[in-house]
Write a protein that binds this DNA or RNA. Structure first.
Lengths: 135, 135
DNA sequence: AGTTGACCTTACAACCATGGTAAGGTTTAA
DNA sequence: TTAAACCTTACCATGGTTGTAAGGTCAACT
């Protein structure tokens, strides 16, 4: 017996807002949901699972395009784990690059902040650093 | 003698695209530039310095709203370095939170990827992890 | 039956910083 | 004079999400 729920219930069950569920359908990440006679979207257990899959993927920072691929792999019994791992490793590289970029910002900014007295004087090495000719 | 340049020159001199220079003027981060009779924007040395300031601030990840504040501080001889340092430290906290979030993603995803053979088999712990009921 | 409140629908705008395009005016150099 | 390289404004798109507005539906209570 397929328990069907409307979008609000699906939202609270999966932690994805109704708004986003509609959006995912819109951009083709989710198949179009069935409807009641009045036009209300209905979701079954399988679709709720997919929403959970999407939420966990988003939590790991995957883009919607990547999640679309991941979902396809998940639903495709002929997939090769190589493909999935490749996608994951590309994303890991993205993450690493972002971390590196942030670490660089952090280092530079921390150095400037450390030099700044942070009192009621106007002299401010942070502003001086940002104003520097060099870079 | 104030050397005046048009927007393309300002762009190549400061590393900020002409598009963005107009945008910064539009949102009020930069004062409106003076114009030639034909309506071309003109930039003097001071304005070029401000554009450099903006670029370096962007490189450190500051938002335009924050940069607007930083620029005001820079131009205000009555500022207190306390205010600037506070702004910088808030941003440093943002950066740290982003790094932490990314590190968490990285850890989880790396664990999943490590468990995945990445061969021509369909079995894939990455997909299994994303499909998990638990989270 | 009627009303109320909680739900659902679509369609639109906004966010942020940036890039792109289009249609047109200006300047400079050949 | 013409061509190239500039400039102008005014749009649209990105990505993922939220907000709002104007309306239809459903269930429960009076």
């Amino acid at each position: 017996m397929d328990t069907l729920v409307t979008i609000g219930k699906a939202a609270s069950l999966t932690g994805i807002s109704a708004k986003m569920i509609r959006y995912y359908e819109d951009i083709g990440v989710l198949k179009k949901a069935s409807r009641t006679e009045a036009g209300y979207r209905l979701y079954n257990q399988t679709q709720l699972q997919q929403l959970g899959f999407i939420r966990r993927s988003r939590n790991l920072g995957f883009s919607m395009a990547e999640i679309q691929s991941l979902l396809k792999f998940w639903l495709d019994s002929d997939r090769e784990s190589r493909q999935v791992k490749q996608l994951a490793q590309n994303h890991l590289q993205d993450i690493n690059e972002k971390i590196l970029a942030l670490e660089k910002m952090k280092t530079v900014l921390q150095e400037l902040a450390d030099k700044c007295d942070g009192d009621d004087n106007a002299k401010c090495p942070i502003l001086e650093g940002l104003a520097e000719f060099s870079s």
